[in-house]
């Protein structure tokens, strides 16, 4: 039988099922991080536009730090920091047993913090893109502050932010590969295992790259479709030349 087929076969002999499981974890991690990071980004963006100086400064510092640090370093800091924190916390509460920080949660928090910083920039841009008259018009109709944001601002915000958030998602998808260094059994992790056992690094890392590429291309198509959907009410008119 074809040796390539054997290597990638499903079941105990081949690596097909392991790689598929790893790819599943990669996608699960990216999907779990997305809402957390995007919501965090919106909060940071609102903080950066806050009338209070201290809140604004917090937003700026947050963005500077998490945009400037290598993702790998953020990951290590969060993973080891939370592990040590968890250990100390448990000891303070009187538990003596060891408890590991789950790699998935650490990865989610680390990537979410980074995504929060990058998506806050997108949100700020989108917030600036909404005309002041929209807010004033809604206020004139007697809507309360929460209602204005939910009913008037948010739907327009999503349309303006979508291209940027789509970019953020593509970056996030690639960054998940780093989580294999804290032993989360994702696609990179299983690929590494497979190369050690089979001595076929070029084949397996090449395959992993192609799987990531496939995810990227599917995402790009999905984002394009989503953009068309949220933009369906808008026709490009000459005077709306933003």
């Amino acid at each position: 039988m074809d040796p390539l087929f054997n290597l990638l076969a499903w079941g105990p002999g081949g690596w097909g099922d392991e790689l598929a499981a790893g790819a599943g974890i990669t996608i699960a991690l990216a999907l779990a991080t997305l809402p957390f990071g995007v919501a965090l980004g919106l909060l940071v963006a609102l903080a950066k536009r806050s009338p209070h100086r201290i809140v604004r400064a917090f937003g700026t510092v947050y963005t500077t730090v998490f945009r400037g640090l290598p993702e790998l370093l953020t990951l290590y800091l969060v993973y080891f920091g939370l592990s040590i924190g968890l250990q100390t916390g448990l000891k303070a509460l009187g538990f003596s047993g060891r408890m590991e920080m789950p790699a998935f949660v650490a990865g989610m928090i680390a990537l979410g913090l980074v995504l929060g910083a990058f998506s806050s920039e997108v949100w700020v841009g989108a917030l600036n893109g909404i005309d002041k008259g929209q807010r004033e018009g809604a206020a004139a109709l007697g809507l309360r502050k929460g209602q204005i944001f939910r009913l008037v601002i948010m739907p327009q915000l999503l349309r303006l932010a979508l291209p940027g958030l789509g970019n953020n998602w593509m970056v996030l998808l690639k960054e998940t590969s780093l989580i294999s260094v804290i032993a989360l059994p994702d696609l990179m992790f299983w690929t590494g295992r497979a190369t050690v056992v089979t001595k076929e690094p070029f084949l397996f890392f090449g395959l992993a790259c192609l799987i990531y590429l496939f995810f990227s291309m599917v995402s790009a198509a999905g984002i394009a479709a989503l953009e068309r959907r949220v933009g369906r009410g808008y026709v490009r008119s000459p005077e709306a030349g933003r």
């Binding site: 593509m170 690639k174 960054e175 998940t176 590969s177 780093l178 990179m188 690929t191 590494g192 690094p201 070029f202 890392f205 090449g206 992993a208 790259c209 192609l210 990531y212 590429l213 990227s216 291309m217």
Partner: peptide, 12 residues
């Protein structure tokens, strides 16, 4: 090169 993680490229 833009669609795959740099880590994967480096290992490759």
């Amino acid at each position: 090169f833009r669609g795959t993680p740099i880590l994967c490229q480096l290992f490759l």
